[in-house]
């Protein structure tokens, strides 16, 4: 007996894809930290004039660390989601098995009521797991929003960097490079979040 099965991507695979995609942000965060380090070296070389870059360097560093923490947090949530999602798949399978048993046993079978109660209990459990899955996704969504929010000050950091750079002729180019690097990394992170978010929405619809 061959069954026709429509193959759809299981939710736990999509969740892993989201996590893997967000993982790329970790290396972007590292990139930001490298940029901050670079900026600190240039500041030191610029001597007295470079001191104005201190707060900027710190700002970039803090931003990088915050983002990395948030990504790791989402990572954990996604593992939790996957576990629960597999549990939900098992419940679906159990529900099908008990449904089938119920039908085979027949309505006039001596244990029909007891088997239906078992089947209904699995359905209730499955519904509860689905609610938990949705909760899990919305937590992931919040964390992603937090990453976007923490990116907001980068515009200010970049603009400031450019203004300060214009005052120091010797190191103007180097600081502008720093500004450029921060701007482009932050843009990459934003794009990554946007992409991950659309997958998350897709997940919310299939749970």
């Amino acid at each position: 007996m061959q069954k026709d099965v429509e193959i759809t991507t299981p939710n736990f695979v999509t969740a892993a894809t989201v996590a893997a995609q967000l993982h790329q942000i970790l290396s972007m965060g590292e990139q930001l930290q490298m940029t901050a380090l670079n900026a600190a070296i240039i500041s030191a070389r610029a001597g007295e004039q470079g001191k104005t870059f201190g707060p900027l360097t710190d700002g970039i560093n803090t931003l990088a660390k915050n983002i990395q923490t948030l990504v790791l947090d989402i990572d954990n949530k996604s593992v939790g989601f996957s576990r629960k999602s597999i549990m939900e798949m098992n419940h679906q399978r159990q529900q099908e098995a008990f449904n089938k048993a119920c039908n085979l046993h027949g309505e006039d079978g001596p244990n029909h009521n007891k088997i239906s109660i078992l089947r209904d209990k699995i359905l209730t459990d499955r519904n509860n797991i689905q609610q938990e899955l949705l909760g899990n996704l919305s937590e992931m969504g919040h964390l992603m929003k937090e990453i976007s929010t923490s990116l907001r000050p980068t515009d200010y950091l970049v603009a400031n960097c450019r203004i300060e750079a214009s005052h120091i002729t010797d190191f103007c180019g180097a600081f502008n490079d720093v500004a450029e690097m921060v701007a482009s990394t932050s843009k990459q992170i934003s794009e990554n979040i946007k992409k991950s978010n659309s997958l998350l929405i897709q997940l919310q619809e299939t749970v």
Partner: peptide
């Protein structure tokens, strides 16, 4: 499992 549950419970209470 489905046929087993259906069949054994025809002979014995679950």
């Amino acid at each position: 499992f489905p046929p087993m549950l259906a069949f054994v419970t025809r002979h014995a209470d679950i």
